[in-house]
Amino acid sequence: MNMSECLIENRNRLIELLANIPFAASPDGWERIGEIAISGFIGFGFARSKTNLILVVSTSGRALVNCDSAEKIDRDYEEFKGVDDSGIFCEGIGEIAGEKILIAGPNGGGLPNSTCLGETLRLCSPNWPQHSLYFCGPEGNPLIEKFQKNCIKLLTDFIEAYGFSWCGDYFAIANSANLEIWKRE
């Protein structure tokens, strides 16, 4: 068997393995709060000072969103205002003005992909460029059959960024047009 055949066989094995994981709109103990439309997505990040706030950055400005209600509580409309040259930090607005927010988006950056309780968000892309995002409880892993029982599939889409809040009580997923928010019950 040549290398190409091995890669194709492994890809098919992974697709079959991932097909065993059930879809759910929310993990047990979590509630989907809502969805916000985004035009020209650059990134999003959770505040550290007020852990229920998320900063959404787009080419049409910044929005501050309350993760308990998915409501925009502040907004500006200046293109790229507050974004640093790397595109992974942005200055907050409103209640978090002056706070430097680490944002995740197509330029990189990063947010926690796990909580102190052992929950993880895992991205798998056997059908790239489309991605599937899995929420796994402690010791869950979508790519290991015996650890799949603690996993659910949340979404299959062209995912741009995802992550938990710094306190671990919220998580969000963004594609180029929407941001979805979940809250621990």
Results as ranks from 00 to 15, higher is better:
residue 33 I to M: 08
residue 142 P to E: 02
residue 104 A to Y: 05
residue 123 L to T: 04
residue 120 T to E: 15
residue 161 A to I: 14
residue 2 N to V: 04
residue 5 E to M: 02
residue 133 L to P: 01
residue 63 A to C: 08
residue 176 S to K: 12
residue 55 L to F: 13
residue 110 G to A: 06
residue 59 T to A: 10
residue 55 L to W: 12
residue 120 T to A: 15
residue 67 C to F: 08
residue 16 E to G: 13
residue 113 N to R: 08
residue 47 A to F: 12
residue 72 K to V: 15
residue 11 R to P: 05
residue 70 A to M: 06
residue 25 A to S: 11
residue 98 G to Q: 01
residue 91 E to C: 10
residue 183 K to W: 07
residue 165 S to L: 04
residue 26 S to E: 15
residue 95 E to C: 00
residue 40 G to R: 02
residue 142 P to S: 09
residue 18 L to V: 06
residue 132 S to G: 05
residue 31 E to N: 13
residue 44 F to G: 10
residue 162 Y to N: 02
residue 106 P to F: 04
residue 112 P to C: 13
residue 81 K to P: 04
residue 150 N to P: 05
residue 33 I to P: 07
residue 87 G to W: 15
residue 87 G to T: 15
residue 42 I to M: 08
residue 143 L to S: 08
residue 13 R to L: 11
residue 155 L to D: 02
residue 79 E to H: 07
residue 92 G to R: 01
residue 31 E to M: 09
residue 107 N to P: 08
residue 94 G to H: 00
residue 43 G to N: 07
residue 85 D to Y: 10
residue 93 I to V: 08
residue 162 Y to T: 11
residue 13 R to F: 11
residue 142 P to Q: 06
residue 92 G to T: 04
residue 128 W to S: 13
residue 138 P to K: 15
residue 29 G to W: 05
residue 2 N to R: 04
residue 7 L to Y: 13
residue 117 L to M: 06
residue 175 N to D: 14
residue 71 E to P: 00
residue 96 I to Q: 03
residue 172 A to E: 01
residue 24 A to Y: 11
residue 34 G to T: 04
residue 49 S to L: 11
residue 13 R to E: 02
residue 80 F to M: 15
residue 22 P to T: 15
residue 53 L to Y: 12
residue 105 G to K: 09
residue 84 D to H: 10
residue 153 K to W: 00
residue 16 E to A: 15
residue 136 C to A: 09
residue 173 I to M: 14
residue 131 H to W: 01
residue 136 C to N: 12
residue 83 V to E: 12
residue 141 N to W: 09
residue 34 G to Q: 12
residue 10 N to M: 10
residue 10 N to C: 10
residue 43 G to L: 05
residue 10 N to Y: 13
residue 164 F to E: 07
residue 181 I to R: 04
residue 129 P to Q: 07
residue 47 A to N: 07
residue 100 K to H: 02
residue 83 V to I: 15
residue 152 I to Y: 06
residue 1 M to C: 04
residue 62 R to D: 10
residue 173 I to S: 08
residue 182 W to A: 03
residue 128 W to N: 08
residue 140 G to K: 01
residue 40 G to Y: 09
residue 164 F to C: 03
residue 167 C to N: 15
residue 9 E to F: 12
residue 176 S to T: 14
residue 128 W to C: 09
residue 30 W to A: 06
residue 127 N to G: 07
residue 3 M to G: 02
residue 73 I to G: 00
residue 78 E to I: 15
residue 93 I to M: 03
residue 94 G to E: 00
residue 114 S to G: 10
residue 86 S to I: 09
residue 110 G to N: 05
residue 99 E to V: 11
residue 55 L to G: 14
residue 117 L to W: 06
residue 181 I to P: 04
residue 185 E to W: 02
residue 183 K to P: 03
residue 101 I to W: 00
residue 110 G to W: 08
residue 5 E to L: 03
residue 130 Q to F: 06
residue 66 N to T: 09
residue 149 K to E: 08
residue 185 E to L: 06
residue 52 N to P: 08
residue 43 G to C: 07
residue 61 G to E: 02
residue 141 N to C: 13
residue 50 K to G: 00
residue 140 G to P: 06
residue 76 D to Q: 14
residue 153 K to M: 12
residue 178 N to K: 11
residue 125 S to R: 08
residue 67 C to A: 14
residue 85 D to I: 11
residue 84 D to L: 06
residue 167 C to W: 12
residue 148 Q to E: 10
residue 32 R to N: 00
residue 64 L to E: 03
residue 180 E to A: 01
residue 82 G to C: 11
residue 114 S to V: 03
residue 165 S to V: 03
residue 47 A to K: 02
residue 14 L to P: 02
residue 5 E to C: 01
